[in-house]
Simulated assay, not measured.
Amino acid sequence: MVLPTAAQAAPAHNRTAVVAHRGASAYAPENTLAAIDRAHALGITWVENDVQRTKDGALVVLHDTTLARTTNVEQVYPDRSPWNVADFTSGEIAKLDAGSWKGVEYTGARIPTLHEYLRRVDRNHQKLLMEIKSPELYPGIEGQILHQLRRDGWLDSQDVKHRLIIQSFNADSVRTLHARRPDIKTGFLGTPAVSELPAYAKFADQINPSHTTISADYVKAVHALKGPHGKPLESYTWTVNDAKTAQQVAGFGVDGIISNAPDVVRAAVGG
């Protein structure tokens, strides 16, 4: 009898990528440099972020389209409700405290520019799953992101192949990005109907749904199709923060799990 090798015997979920959602955001203020560093300290290679644009055209890393939840903008600029990112200049945003809401030890943390964020990810030898956040609010942001990635040295063949994925909830944005740089791996955030998956497979390499919307059959349907690079579509699911759910979705066969607590997920499923 021929015994299987260790690799052959390992459960499929041991190959599941673990991605730190907005950095290790269970432990440090989301989308800050501190959150990237916390993920690095935990040994997490992949980090996820969100990119938006300021009033004066700077690219910044922030999840919400308003500044209210994660900064002290209401105190610093009390008369500028609803405090939309697009209504503030990069200089104004740089004055905000984006850390103290998470704990006094993070007081003074700032919203990073995309340039600052890319430099820190690079310094930590990490990989990036980037979300283009609400691109319908920022016409042309895809080209601007590509320009910044190029300036920071992220568009050479090795980086594109091994350490960069760009995703969005906006299918038109993903399609635009793919048309501009078809070599970059792309993901669509959401759970399209199985009958619609072939259309997405023309411009997206990944279908990345909420963990509450998937099943083993859905993941199997995703894997049955090939994406624009001729490889089976992948599926990274979000946002999983406990061991039980992590083991469940890993059992469905997902390729990646995006988590605020990536160390918890890694301990549960490997990866």
Rank of each mutant, 00 (worst) to 15 (best):
G227N: 03
K185H: 12
S168R: 04
V265K: 00
P228H: 03
A86N: 14
A6M: 15
A94Y: 03
W101Y: 05
A35Q: 03
V219G: 01
P198K: 08
K185V: 12
H13F: 08
Q52K: 09
F252E: 00
P29S: 02
S215Q: 12
H40I: 13
I36S: 07
Y106H: 05
Q158C: 14
V269Y: 05
S210W: 08
R151S: 12
I132E: 02
L129A: 02
H229S: 10
A86V: 14
S134I: 10
R38W: 06
V174M: 08
D172M: 14
S215R: 13
A34T: 03
R80F: 06
T71F: 01
D159Y: 09
D205T: 12
G153K: 06
A17V: 11
L146S: 07
I184T: 01
E74H: 14
V264H: 00
G271H: 01
T212W: 10
P78L: 09
L155W: 07
Q206G: 10
R69C: 08
I111C: 05
I258Q: 00
L155H: 13
L155N: 10
Q75C: 12
P4V: 12
Q247K: 02
P198V: 07
V18Y: 00
H211F: 14
V254A: 06
S195P: 13
I141Y: 01
Y138V: 03
V104C: 15
T54L: 01
A193F: 10
R175G: 08
R151H: 14
S81N: 12
A171L: 15
H115G: 14
E48V: 04
T237K: 02
I132S: 00
E142D: 11
R163N: 09
L146H: 07
Q52H: 11
P135V: 01
H13Q: 10
L59N: 00
D37A: 10
A28E: 06
S134Y: 13
Y106E: 01
G57F: 01
H115L: 15
V265L: 04
D159V: 14
S81I: 11
F188A: 02
K102A: 00
A20C: 09
T16N: 08
V104P: 15
T191Q: 12
L3A: 13
L146I: 09
N124G: 11
A7L: 12
A17Q: 09
D172Y: 13
R15C: 04
Q167R: 04
